[in-house]
Design a protein around this nucleic acid. Structure first.
Lengths: 295, 295
DNA sequence: GTCTGATGTGATAAAAACTCACAGCAGCAA
DNA sequence: TTGCTGCTGTGAGTTTTTATCACATCAGAC
């Protein structure tokens, strides 16, 4: 089968189904009905004369050949997309966690827009692994808790500084003269960083300090919000509470210490020639470097 | 533009047109009319909002963006094709020059078929550069006059042995007691190896021997045929005249010497797991190694 | 000046892809 | 068991895309 007669659309439908593990999901992604995807995949299987999926009542599982094909085809489509995006660069897409987005990036966007008036910007909320090609991400802020994917170039920008923060009245009520006072405090925890408190205790030179969690929240900004209204202590990176501390809504009676993680910028390597990406990288790098607790 | 909405068919038409430098040629390759290709490319240009080709009355020339896109897209399609051919291996395709094909490979095919009865074989005539992916070539015989493409793994099999050959009556008439007798002979030349005679003179230890060509032929087998009917001396690799020398239709009064080129096998790297390719490679390697002049 | 070999395009035909609606399947819960 | 759910498969019919055909246009070649 020569290049001239590759069943391109069928391969795309197949790749999506294999990646998502579902024809219906692939159909949604492609903006068609599940029947269309089913037919395309059937046609592909007929053409190859072998099954690409095992059908189970609630799921499809790629066969050995199907999995191999899907992986190879996915890489080829990824390259195609990169090729096209070079000709048609989309908006500059910044990705970071919901919390950094809400508490740090969005408040600074007007400044960014002023500094980069011609930038066509789009925001993407995600944390951890990022698919730079599929999600068309240009630039991401991540911690070294995660490794950059092969399609991205990582650059460490700053060490994360972490510390316990709470409502000023709560701090006054509790009395915060020494770290051990925290034992009597309500400890608020973020589910995505379950070890944060013990990491902090280690960094603060008190690895013996065992603090039992009172509440666990799914998002960092919920933890911070809870702390701000006096429900206890959140353990927060300075970058996420900088504004509240300046405004007096939060206090950090024990200051901040350098934690075990670094903040990185991940740049889409296939977009590294975009001038707007370079500008945005420079701007973010410099803004992030100015985030330092007054410890 | 996300992967889900890449204009795959238009990109394929565009890639073919860019590669062939002509929409009509692309249309032929794709098995459609030139109008279809013209429309696809137009649609692509409209979509990107920029011209991909400069139109000239007799030719199209890719713009800077077009050339970049074509090259990237070509690589992606090449990967797609490799991915598909892994699932659907086509026939085992052997490529060599017309002369090796006619005079060496085809006479030995019955032997090959006996040794590899299950092989589905296809022959491809070409020399010099080979596009292993597009032409679906599995294995090629080439000389070191050419470099293997990145998609192929080269293995040197044997040193080419070259020598002047002619019709036995012609040799008798001329009298061939020493190399200088060639000065009075009619020298036949193959256009694809214009330096062969001087390379041979060098290899034979007589770099001073200048032999003026009398006739130039476009194909090696024409040169050999001309020599066989008594029109003069051909300078031939032993592998191409082995059978004629055995049968007495040609003689090599000055024997053969190791020439400047090696014979190589080029294997399609993306097919290296095919068992039939391994078998064919082994068979060809061993048959080629048995080609040695009795010098 | 005409011919030639290429591409562009309007109208129309063919093919491909898609939708819809329903069927079938097996896990799950009552 | 029985019905419910979430998925995939498929016949019939429709929509959309793509291709063809026939002709137009262009500028260099002869």
């Amino acid at each position: 089968m020569s290049t001239s007669h590759l069943p391109l659309n069928a391969l795309r439908a197949f790749e999506a189904a294999a990646r998502l593990g579902s024809m219906s999901a692939a159909a949604t992604e492609l903006g068609v009905t599940h029947g269309a995807v089913s037919r395309q995949i059937k046609a592909l299987e007929d053409r190859f004369g072998l099954p690409l999926f095992e059908r189970h009542p609630r799921a499809i599982v790629a066969t050995r050949e199907g999995a191999q094909l899907a992986s190879d085809v996915a890489e080829a489509f990824e390259r195609l997309q990169i090729a096209v995006s070079r000709v048609q660069p989309g908006p500059l897409t910044l990705s970071c966690s919901a919390t950094i987005m809400m508490r740090w990036l969005i408040p600074r966007l007007p400044k960014f827009k002023t500094a980069n008036p011609s930038s066509d910007l789009r925001l993407n909320i995600s944390f951890g692994d990022a698919d730079f090609v599929h999600d068309e991400i240009s630039l991401a802020i991540r911690t070294t808790m995660y490794r950059p994917p092969p399609s991205a170039i990582a650059e460490t920008v700053i060490q994360e500084e972490i510390g316990p923060v709470c409502n000023p009245d709560y701090a006054a009520r509790l009395g915060c003269s020494q770290l051990d006072d925290l034992i009597h405090a309500r400890i608020l925890v973020n589910a995505t960083r379950p070890n944060a408190w013990s990491e902090w205790a280690m960094a603060a030179g008190r690895p013996d300090l065992r603090l039992a969690p009172h509440e666990i929240y799914g998002h960092f900004y919920l933890v911070i919000q809870a702390a701000a209204v006096g429900l206890g202590f959140a353990l927060a990176p300075f970058i996420l509470v900088e504004d509240e501390i300046r405004s007096g809504h939060l206090v950090a009676p024990f200051g901040f210490v350098v934690g075990p993680h670094n903040l990185q910028l991940w740049m889409a390597s296939h977009q590294s020639n975009r001038p707007d990406l370079k500008a945005a990288t420079n701007w973010l790098r410099s803004e992030l470097r100015s985030v330092r607790a007054n410890r």
